[in-house]
């Protein structure tokens, strides 16, 4: 419902902007076409192109550094083939903080977090540049062990993706891979405590041998979170973890994120601004490959420093 309303509003806002921006936008559009994505340039959505120009001119508003950073990113650029997906992103992720990444579809939020555990390596056409450091070590250094990195920077995906194995085996998968348990008893302990911390233990303790795919959507997503924390990561990246879930399951996951933030740094991509406001301490607003604004969540939602952010959080487009 809410989303539909936002879309309806954005349509009218777009029309208004189109009427305002009129001719000059068209001309500027032509000038910019050399360094803009061709597909975007060809789209007749003048209003958006106009906003893009605005974003391009802007520096990131707010403070992108964190007091006690786990991960620091400077000058991050990503290309998918010819498409320039992320432009000059600087952002820190601090210890034990939840940072929400918001922005319209296709703005590069998911691309950004996939850089942090090098999941973009699996995409043939993706190219990444910039300086990524975790505790001062270069993430993209030739000597970095990608496998270890992904164990330290866990990831929860948009659609729950439990393996077609039993609940127990799903959680035990990571610890087994990395040899975290010396014997069955230790493995049991890891699995049980991970399920407890993911708030799933009471629901599944009697059926650990049943397939993980038989759980409900919300339970599957918590199973995926349990699976992720079983390898004791420092950072958990969440790519729209609730977008496939109903409101009750969503509320449970949000509670869980709140609890987990005591031990982990969490970066969560979300399309729900209410969710960002509820769970995060800082919020970063992305727009067409740029980081427009990053600041304390309260500030971003009540007193945004950039017009684009304001338009987005007040639902004028999205």
């Amino acid at each position: 419902m809410a989303k539909a309303a936002i879309m309806a509003r954005s349509a009218t806002a777009g029309d208004g902007a189109l009427a305002d921006a009129g001719g000059p936008a068209l001309r500027d559009d032509k000038d910019n076409s050399s360094n803009m994505n061709r597909r975007e340039a060809r789209q007749p959505r003048i209003a958006i192109a106009d906003l893009a120009r605005e974003a391009e001119a802007a520096q990131t508003v707010g403070d992108f550094t964190a007091t006690d950073p786990v991960i620091t990113v400077r000058g991050c650029n990503v290309w998918y083939g010819e498409t320039h997906a992320l432009r000059d992103i600087n952002l820190d992720i601090g210890r034990n903080e939840v940072i929400a990444l918001i922005g319209p579809s296709g703005c590069g939020k998911s691309t950004f977090i996939r850089c942090l555990n090098r999941m973009n390596d699996t995409i043939e056409t993706a190219r990444v540049s910039g300086e990524f450091r975790m505790h001062g070590e270069d993430i993209y250094d030739r000597k970095t062990d990608v496998v270890l990195l992904r164990a330290r920077v866990g990831m929860v995906f948009q659609k729950p993706n439990p393996f077609p194995k039993s609940i127990y085996e799903n959680v035990a998968y990571g610890p087994r891979l990395h040899g975290l348990a010396a014997n069955r008893a230790e493995l049991d302990e890891i699995v049980h405590s991970s399920l407890r911390r993911a708030g799933l233990w009471d629901e599944v303790k009697d059926r650990l041998e049943e397939p993980g795919t038989g759980l409900s959507g919300g339970q599957q997503q918590r199973l995926c979170i349990a699976r992720t924390i079983a390898v004791s990561p420092e950072v958990i990246l969440m790519d729209e973890p609730c977008s496939a879930l109903d409101p009750i399951a969503t509320a449970r996951i949000e509670d869980l994120i709140d609890e987990l933030s005591q031990n982990y740094a969490i970066a969560i991509v979300t399309h729900s601004m209410q969710q960002a406001a509820r769970v995060s301490r800082r919020t970063a607003y992305f727009h067409l490959g740029r980081l427009v604004e990053v600041d304390a969540t309260d500030k971003v939602f009540t007193n945004p420093g950039h017009k684009l952010t304001e338009d987005y959080v007040t639902g004028r487009f999205g």
């Binding site: 699996t122 164990a151 866990g154 393996f163 998968y173 990571g174 891979l177 995926c224 699976r227």
Partner: peptide
């Protein structure tokens, strides 16, 4: 589904471990 592979790779499995433990069993 690619999501299976992503899930395994995201947990720090190598490509061949992913194939052996997730893709082939599935």
């Amino acid at each position: 589904p690619q999501a299976m592979r992503d899930g395994s790779l995201g947990l720090g499995a190598t490509h061949s471990e992913t194939i052996k433990r997730v893709v082939i069993p599935a």
